[in-house]
Amino acid sequence: MLYPTNILPEDYFLEDSHLKASGTLKIIGQVLEEFGYPKLPKPLYGYHDVAGDLRKMLGGDCLEKKQYLKSLDGLPQNRVQHFSTASGLEGNTGHLYFFFNPYALYNVRLVLFGDSFFQRRFDIFKRVFSEVVYFRNPYILDDVVKVLEPDIVLTGNAERYLWHVPDCDNAKPWFMNYISNRYDSKKIPESDIKALTALFSGKSSREYRNMFGKKLTDLPRDIEKLSMLSENDIKTNADISFIKGMADYYEKEHPGVAYYLMSLVKGLDSYKSVG
């Protein structure tokens, strides 16, 4: 069990109760350090004017400069697949989101249980972790964790919600969110249903391997380490697919790196076995 210890008042928005991007990166950094992962690259932030959450609740319309993450130094921008049950479920209780990004910094499955404090920071989680599965729920669902076999689990609840957190021993089962007149499965795209079916079929299932498993690799993500790869580092079809994707991404900005990466996988399309 790990509790964040380095969050300061300045890590929150002044007229809001949500964390800034820098505050979320602090939490992620502490988690990564605990599990022995390398430190995060240097973040590059941007700012835009938005009405704060608490300010809107009080009926005001003043704008606050909101910090967001533009990029992590040396890493490609997102090309993330996004799947959700949100379109078929009224309200937000029970929502499920799944983000898949084979180009994320770490080939790690992260499962989140919590409220909008996590939901507002999807933009960061999906850049750092290859798989992010989020449940709008106030506590950890043990059975779901057993099925999904995550590498890391985070749970969080905003202080303003703590007065009515249900007892996990007495709360209604999670699946009851989808057995009510609030839920209409016809509104969920077929592609989302297919992806979520693969996710919950398990990492070793044919459905998951065919849809996601062949795209995941442990090769480095940052441009400096990519430039030092050799043919000996390429061992799976996922490695080949990943290198091609990185070459495509860097083609305009770093054509020399892109050419080098493509030269590594030239002629390797068919004989590498998937590990």
Rank of each mutant, 00 (worst) to 15 (best):
D53M: 11
Y183D: 04
L196K: 04
V165W: 05
R209V: 10
G88A: 03
F118V: 02
L14E: 12
V145C: 06
W174C: 01
E64D: 15
L54N: 12
K203H: 01
H95E: 01
R182H: 08
L63K: 07
Y249M: 14
N181D: 13
L69M: 07
L196H: 04
F83S: 08
L264Y: 09
D61W: 09
C168W: 00
N181M: 05
N6G: 08
I27L: 08
L162V: 10
K126N: 10
L96T: 05
S116T: 01
A258Q: 06
I193R: 14
T24K: 04
C168V: 14
E64A: 15
Q81N: 13
E190H: 04
P9N: 10
M228K: 11
Q67E: 15
S205Y: 00
T24S: 12
N210W: 00
Y68S: 15
V257W: 01
E231I: 05
G256N: 15
Y208W: 13
G88V: 02
L264W: 13
L110N: 02
L19E: 10
Y208R: 09
K66D: 07
P38A: 11
G91Y: 02
S273A: 11
L58I: 02
K235L: 15
P173E: 13
F13T: 14
G275L: 07
Y271E: 15
E64V: 07
V50Q: 09
D115W: 02
K203I: 11
Y271L: 14
S71C: 08
V128Y: 05
E224A: 03
F83Y: 15
S22H: 01
K187W: 04
R221F: 06
L75S: 00
S230Y: 11
P138W: 07
E10V: 02
S84H: 02
G74H: 09
A158M: 11
V111C: 03
W163F: 03
N137R: 06
K252S: 09
F125Q: 02
N137C: 05
R209T: 09
L154D: 01
V145N: 06
D123K: 04
V80S: 05
K70V: 10
P41A: 07
L72R: 02
G245L: 12
I243F: 07
K172L: 08
K225S: 15
L229S: 07
K187N: 06
A258V: 11
Y134R: 05
K146A: 12
T5Y: 00
P189M: 05
D269S: 11
L69Q: 04
E131M: 11
E207H: 02
E251R: 07
D142Y: 01
L229C: 00
S71I: 09
S230V: 12
T197R: 12
K235N: 15
R182L: 14
L54T: 06
M228I: 08
A51R: 12
L58G: 11
